[in-house]
Amino acid sequence: MQKLLGCTTVAAISLAFATEALATEWNVSLWGKRRAFTEHVEKLAELVSEKTNGEFTLNISYGGLSNNRENLDGISIGAFEMAQFCAGYHRDKNPSITVLELPFLGVETLEQERELSMALYELPAVKEDLGRWNATLLMPSPMPQYNLVGMGEPPRSLEEFAGLSVRATGGIGAAMEAVGAVPTSMSATEVRQSLDSGVITAASFAPHAHMAFGTIENATWWTTNLNPGTVNCPVVANTDALNDLPDAHRDALLGSIDEALDHYVDYYTNETMKAWGPALDERGIERISYDVDALAAFEDAVAGPAAEAWIEDMSARGLPAQELYDFATSKLAELKGQ
């Protein structure tokens, strides 16, 4: 009997160790607070846990693991296994995907942004670029065209942007500069204080971020149709951690991305955008719209030169810049049925 009990105990301990060995926990570095921008990551965590019966969990942290501008650095050294970042925060670290931040690229919907990003992420040059940081691109964070919230007297014509201090990153900053504004790059968490203190007069964001980071609380105006572009903010995994996952856990993670993105797009469309108009109305924020001809002239003045400058700059860095640009524009035309 003692021998039987001893064997049973050893078996139970062995089973416990085996079960523990199968459990996987990943730390995920985000910032701010839960919002439309992070809903796909939240959904991914939920799906992965469900599909693995709780054996694989994503522990999501909003700012507790890293500064948002250092998430890619954290991924590179394995400080955490997954993170979200925006290409425009540090274009030198991820130059290949900044092609998606060019002003007036022509993306019209969240679905187009999603499909275009996922296609670009599969290109060898892009994989190699992010591979320098031991990062594997998992999915984008599709956002609508950015517009400006501001304080004080609104710029009622494009000429009135001259001298205006605007928080704008990436290609949006280049577009603002083209109309005489003074673009300033800062992370999302810094914008509200900078706006309220007068360091900047206006801020470019997608609607969810204007609400999440409080830029509308003291604002007086909003541009409805400036639409200079958007930013590309992917979710990445540490490549070594991804490769080290048990097959079942890796399949659960990668096999949940499409569903997570479906949830994201649905949430942004049916929750965020429905709340945006009432949020402006409640605060008495004036909507500023611009003349179609003025916007066309704005696009003509900005889009071509910005693309040419990007191609020249990125080619000098050794990237196949023309090929990346041609791929992005042709893929977008395909998605739009052109």
Rank of each mutant, 00 (worst) to 15 (best):
L4M: 09
L4N: 15
I13S: 15
S14H: 05
L15M: 15
F17A: 12
F17T: 14
E25K: 15
L30V: 04
F37G: 08
T38E: 07
H40C: 09
H40R: 12
E42A: 09
E46H: 06
L47Y: 03
V48Y: 02
G54V: 08
N59S: 08
I60K: 05
G64A: 13
S66Y: 00
N67K: 14
N67Y: 13
E70G: 01
E70A: 10
D73P: 04
G74W: 00
A83L: 09
F85W: 15
A87Q: 12
A87E: 11
H90W: 10
D92H: 14
K93M: 14
N94D: 13
P95I: 11
L102Y: 10
G106W: 05
E108V: 07
E111R: 12
Q112W: 06
L120Y: 01
L123D: 06
N134V: 07
M139W: 11
P144T: 14
V149N: 05
G150D: 03
G150R: 10
M151W: 07
G152F: 02
E153K: 13
L158N: 06
E159L: 10
E160S: 09
E160I: 09
E160A: 06
F161A: 03
V166D: 02
R167K: 09
I172L: 06
M176L: 07
E177F: 01
G180K: 08
A181I: 01
M186R: 00
S194Y: 06
G198D: 03
A202K: 03
A206F: 06
A206V: 14
A209F: 12
G214N: 13
G214Y: 12
E217Q: 10
N218G: 12
T220L: 12
N225Y: 07
L226I: 03
V235E: 01
N238Q: 11
T239I: 01
T239S: 15
D240N: 13
L242Q: 08
L253A: 01
L254T: 05
L254E: 04
I257M: 08
I257K: 00
E259L: 00
A260T: 01
V265Q: 03
Y267T: 05
N270T: 08
N270S: 06
M273W: 05
A275T: 09
W276E: 11
E282I: 13
R283V: 04
I285R: 05
S289W: 04
S289N: 03
S289I: 15
D293K: 10
D293W: 06
L295H: 09
F298I: 04
A301L: 14
A309H: 13
A316E: 10
P320Q: 09
P320G: 08
P320C: 07
P320W: 03
A333M: 10
L335H: 11
K336H: 08
